[in-house]
Amino acid sequence: MNVVYNLGERRRKKQWKFERSMLRSLSIHEMRNDAERTFFSGQIGETVGTLYLMDFCLDIGIDAYLLGSEYARFGYFGETAEQAEKRCEEELNALTGQTASQFTAWYTGGERSIDEHRKKSSAFIKKWWKKGFTEGEKKYRLRLH
């Protein structure tokens, strides 16, 4: 009996398995609280825009966390977090740009507001990327990948 494996499919399944295992160690409650502190600290009440943006922040935070965990492989092989972060700088900038654009679209406030949204977005994304990197590195060290 001949068995033919599709290498791309096998890689994709391995990646999904790794991502699922990483998501088990992620606290959505902690991420939600962090997003509230970072982006919504001065607002009172919940509006449709706030609820939408909170969901968007959680999605972006999860993406940053998984991206960090994916690049943790380089940390396992001896690179520092800063070196690994430079490898995925383009993806992190894209996530930061998307987040800042969403906040700018919902809250108008001029040029100063755009810079403020970009700074907050960058800090939030880098924080969750770093957490994903740290957790991923632990999994690689324990050979749980």
Rank of each mutant, 00 (worst) to 15 (best):
V3T: 13
V4Y: 15
Y5G: 11
G8D: 12
G8I: 07
G8E: 12
R10D: 14
R11C: 05
R11H: 12
K14P: 00
Q15W: 08
K17E: 15
F18C: 08
R24G: 10
R24V: 13
I28T: 14
I28R: 13
I28Q: 10
I28P: 03
H29I: 15
H29F: 10
E30W: 01
M31F: 01
R32C: 04
N33M: 12
N33E: 13
D34H: 14
A35Y: 03
E36R: 10
E36H: 08
F39C: 04
F39T: 01
G42Q: 09
Q43P: 01
E46A: 02
E46I: 01
V48L: 13
G49I: 06
T50A: 08
L51V: 15
L51Q: 10
Y52S: 04
L53G: 02
M54G: 05
D55T: 04
F56E: 02
C57V: 02
C57T: 06
C57G: 00
L58M: 11
I60R: 03
G61A: 07
I62D: 06
D63P: 02
L67R: 04
L67Y: 04
G68S: 05
E70D: 11
Y71M: 06
Y71C: 01
R73N: 10
R73Y: 15
G78N: 12
G78P: 11
G78I: 08
T80I: 07
Q83M: 09
A84D: 06
E85N: 06
R87A: 05
T96Q: 05
Q98V: 11
T99E: 05
T99N: 02
S101M: 10
S101K: 11
F103E: 00
T104W: 00
T104A: 06
W106Q: 11
Y107N: 11
G109V: 05
G109N: 07
E111P: 06
E111R: 15
R112V: 11
S113C: 05
S113L: 02
I114G: 00
H117F: 11
H117D: 02
S121H: 01
I125G: 00
I125K: 01
K126W: 02
K126Q: 14
W128L: 12
W129E: 09
F133T: 04
F133S: 02
T134L: 03
E135A: 12
K138P: 05
K138M: 13
K139T: 06
K139I: 02
K139S: 07
Y140H: 13
L142S: 12
H145V: 12
